[in-house]
Simulated scan of single mutants.
Amino acid sequence: MSSALFRFKQFTIHHDRTAMKVGTDGVLLGAIAGSGNPRNILEIGVGSGVVSMMLAQRFPMAKITGVEIDRDAWNQATENAQNSPWGQRIEFLNTSFQDYGSNRSEKFDLIVSNPPYFTNHLKSKDSKRNMALHNDALPFTELVVGVQRFLNPESEFWVILPPDQMTELQKKLSSSGLNIIFKANVKDSPSKNILRMIYGFSFFNQSVIEINLSIKEEDGKFSDDYSELLKEFLIVF
């Protein structure tokens, strides 16, 4: 695998011009987010485009729209999508989520995001990486306002975050009437602390599905659950 690209079983992601490279967070979100048969999907913060393309593979009837504020990332994600088997169903727009939401009224069956979440952390000299990691450009309050605007009563919003930030976002979503419908607690191995949480939210109330997912076993091998989840995507499986 070259550092400039990441090969999946059905598509290839070039990510040399994006601040955030293909990583475990995006791959997990792409493999887990959503249920049923969504026809209209929005991704907030496209990056390299990997999440949208995994969703396109999983949901063959879906039309996918993505917004990406960084122009270089948007250009590369668009190229990645156009070179994939699902280019005709994917459209990425070079705009902020706030600007995108200010003049549109359509609703989405599924909204997904791997959002920037650092608030008061020391920043690097790389402005693009800062934008991808720090939520100055998309504070949680504005994320929630936009998500609420674009959801139907039975639509779903799925997001991946570290535990502390998920707690913060969940409180804001709950205040807007959105309920948790799914929880995935992600650990590096069973004995480690939770690294990430993937939550699904909706306006309707239902019993919460909760899973615990370890990426590796204690011996360092990929876990059966992780391998099963990503066997349709990653070449290593």
Rank of each mutant, 00 (worst) to 15 (best):
S2T: 07
S3A: 13
R7P: 00
F11K: 00
F11Q: 00
T12E: 12
T12C: 13
H15N: 09
H15R: 06
K21V: 06
G26A: 08
A33Q: 11
A33Y: 10
G34F: 12
S35F: 11
P38W: 07
R39T: 10
N40V: 05
G45T: 04
G45M: 06
V46D: 04
V46I: 14
G47Y: 01
S48Y: 01
G49C: 06
V50K: 01
V50D: 01
S52I: 02
M54N: 07
M54T: 03
A56K: 01
A56W: 02
Q57M: 07
P60D: 14
M61G: 10
M61Y: 13
A62E: 06
G66A: 07
R71M: 11
N75G: 03
N75D: 07
N75M: 10
N83I: 02
E91N: 15
N94W: 02
S96K: 02
Y100L: 05
S102L: 08
S102P: 04
N103C: 11
E106T: 05
F108G: 04
V112E: 01
V112A: 02
S113I: 02
N114G: 06
P115K: 03
T119D: 08
L122F: 14
L122M: 07
K123Q: 15
K125I: 07
R129Q: 10
N130R: 04
A132V: 03
L133W: 03
H134W: 06
H134L: 02
P139C: 10
F140G: 01
L143Y: 07
V145M: 08
V145S: 12
Q148V: 15
F150Q: 02
F150D: 01
L151R: 01
L151K: 01
P153I: 08
E154Y: 11
E154C: 12
S155I: 05
S155Y: 09
F157M: 08
L161P: 04
D164I: 11
M166R: 07
M166N: 12
E168D: 13
L173V: 03
L173K: 03
S174R: 07
S174W: 04
S176M: 09
G177L: 09
G177I: 07
L178I: 02
L178M: 12
L178H: 04
A184V: 11
S189C: 14
S191I: 12
S191A: 15
S191R: 13
S191D: 10
K192C: 12
N193S: 12
I194H: 06
I194M: 05
M197V: 14
I198H: 10
Y199Q: 06
G200T: 11
G200M: 14
S202F: 08
F204P: 03
N205Y: 08
N205Q: 14
V208K: 04
I209V: 13
I211T: 09
K216V: 09
E217A: 13
E217Q: 14
E218H: 12
D219W: 03
G220Q: 06
D224G: 04
D224T: 10
S227Y: 00
L229M: 05
L230V: 05
K231C: 06
E232I: 01
E232Y: 02
F237E: 06
F237K: 03
